[in-house]
Design a binder for these strands. Structure first.
Length: 109
DNA sequence: CGTCTGACGCACG
DNA sequence: GCGTGCGCCAGAC
């Protein structure tokens, strides 16, 4: 099933995100050869919640460093707490010094 | 089967 | 910097 391969690819990349670093949906999409399907990355992560798969999904934000998916975690502040516990400060649902914490799967792999 | 929506991102004005 | 439109594609209705 190709759909499963897409999901596997997303999981693989997300699992490689170092602690204290963040990346974006678009970067992941580009890394797995689906640059235009960044939306599907979010869809895949959402799928991971259902399947009980653990992924550091809190390290994945949109291109602005905005925690767009925070509402999908247990509480509205869970994502932010996880990030801050790793040294990534978040204010107003945005990652501070985003560019500095950004981890590009293409460049780093 | 037609439409709308959405953890996105880019181009345009 | 901001609003709008479009491409992408799976899922809900």
């Amino acid at each position: 099933m190709e759909q499963n391969e897409f999901i596997d690819a997303v999981y693989a990349v997300v699992r490689l995100i170092p602690q204290g670093r963040v990346t974006t949906y678009g970067a992941i999409a580009a890394a797995i050869g689906a640059k235009k399907s960044s939306r599907m990355v979010g869809w895949a992560l959402n799928k991971s919640l259902q399947t009980g798969e653990f992924l550091p999904a809190h390290r994945v934000v949109n291109r602005n460093g905005l925690l767009t998916g925070k509402n999908y975690f247990g509480s509205a502040d869970t994502m932010q707490k996880l990030l801050e516990s790793e040294g990534v400060l978040v204010v107003d649902d945005k990652v501070l010094h985003f560019k500095k914490h950004f981890w590009d799967p293409i460049s780093e792999l």
